[in-house]
C-alpha cells in the first residue's frame, strides 16, 4: 500500500476575491496522527471539507492513497470517514440504526459489524442509549455516535473536525487513546483542533494554518527547533506564529492596569 495516505497538492479554495485556502502542499504518511491547527477562520474546516469531498477545490488536488477524491469520489470515499464539528445526524434513526446504515453502505459483514459496533458503543458509553432515537441525544452523545459511525467500518483515513468539543473528560480520554491505538495499527488520522494540549500530546506531526497558508509544519521537536526555543510549548509557538502574542501582551497590560487601580 502507498505510504502517503493523504496528499494535498496545490489545494486552493477561493470565494470570488477571497482566498480561503491558498495552494496547500502537505503529505501525511500512513499511520500518522496529524494535527491541523489554526485560529478561527484560518481555513481548517474548508481544507477538511475539500479532503472529504464536501467542497470542490478551486485549484489543486486532494488525494487519498493516491486517489483524487474529486475525480474518483467513490473509490476515495471507500477509504475515509469524517466526523464534523457539528454532527447533524438523522434524528429519527436510533444510534444502532445509524451504525447499521453506515455498515450497510460499506458492506461490512454482519458478524464483524456486530462485534465492532458493540465494542465502540461500549468504549463511548453508549450501549444503554443505542436504541434511543438520535434526536434525544445530547450534543456530546451525537458526537460520540458520529465517531462510532466513522470507526465501525475501520477506515484507512479518519478526518476529525474538533472531535473533543462536547465530549466528557472520560470519552475525550478514550478517544485519544483509541486514536493513538488505531494509528499505531495503520490508520491515518487528520485532526483539526483548538485544544493545543491534545495536539501536543497526541499528534505525530502538526500543521498550522493561518489565512489559508501553512505557516508551520513538522513534529513538536521540529517546530521547537525552528523557533529556536526548546522549552516552548505548542501554545507558545502557536501564539507566536498566529499573532496571538500581541493580544497576550494587551491582556496582561489591561490586567496589570487593573491591579494598580
Amino acid at each position: 500500500m502507498n505510504s502517503t495516505s493523504i496528499k494535498l497538492h496545490n489545494l486552493a479554495k477561493s470565494y470570488r476575491k477571497h482566498v480561503a485556502v491558498n495552494n496547500l502542499n502537505v503529505e501525511v504518511e500512513r499511520g500518522e496522527l496529524f494535527g491541523f491547527l489554526g485560529p478561527n477562520g484560518a481555513g481548517k474546516t474548508t481544507t477538511i471539507k475539500m479532503l472529504t469531498g464536501l467542497l470542490e477545490p478551486t485549484n489543486g488536488e486532494a488525494l487519498i492513497y493516491g486517489i483524487d477524491i474529486w475525480k474518483h469520489p467513490i473509490e476515495a470515499k471507500k477509504k475515509i470517514a469524517y466526523v464534523p464539528d457539528q454532527p447533524n445526524l438523522y434524528p429519527k434513526l436510533t444510534g444502532w440504526d445509524y451504525l447499521e446504515f453506515i455498515a450497510s453502505v460499506f458492506r461490512v459483514p454482519n458478524e464483524k459489524f456486530q462485534t465492532k459496533a458493540k465494542e465502540l458503543l461500549d468504549i463511548f458509553n453508549l450501549t444503554e442509549q443505542a436504541h434511543d432515537l438520535i434526536e434525544s441525544y445530547s450534543h456530546g452523545m451525537k458526537q460520540k455516535i458520529a465517531i462510532c459511525g466513522a470507526l465501525v467500518h475501520e477506515p484507512d483515513v479518519l478526518f476529525l473536525d474538533e472531535p473533543t468539543v462536547g465530549l466528557d473528560p472520560k470519552s475525550a480520554r478514550n478517544l485519544k487513546n483509541l486514536l493513538r491505538n488505531l494509528c499505531d495499527n495503520g490508520m491515518t488520522a487528520f485532526v483539526s483542533t483548538h485544544i493545543l494540549e491534545i495536539a501536543e500530546q497526541m499528534c505525530d506531526r502538526v500543521g498550522i494554518i493561518l489565512d489559508g497558508n501553512i505557516i508551520a509544519l513538522g513534529s513538536m521537536e521540529e517546530l521547537k527547533s525552528q523557533s529556536q526555543k526548546a522549552d516552548q510549548s505548542l501554545e507558545d509557538i502557536f501564539l507566536e506564529l498566529t499573532g496571538g502574542e500581541e493580544q497576550k501582551a494587551l491582556i496582561s497590560e489591561i490586567s496589570s492596569n487593573g491591579d494598580t487601580k
Partner: peptide, 29 residues
C-alpha cells in the same frame, strides 16, 4: 422520557445492499 433499556445482544442485525439501506433509512425517518 422513560428510556428503554438496550439489549444489544438481542438486536437483530440487517446489513443490506446500499440501495436497500437508503430506502430503509428513509422509511425510519
Amino acid at each position: 422520557k422513560k428510556k428503554k433499556k438496550s439489549n444489544l445482544d438481542k438486536s437483530k442485525v440487517f446489513i443490506h445492499h446500499p440501495i436497500i439501506a437508503i430506502g430503509k433509512k428513509e422509511w425510519y425517518s
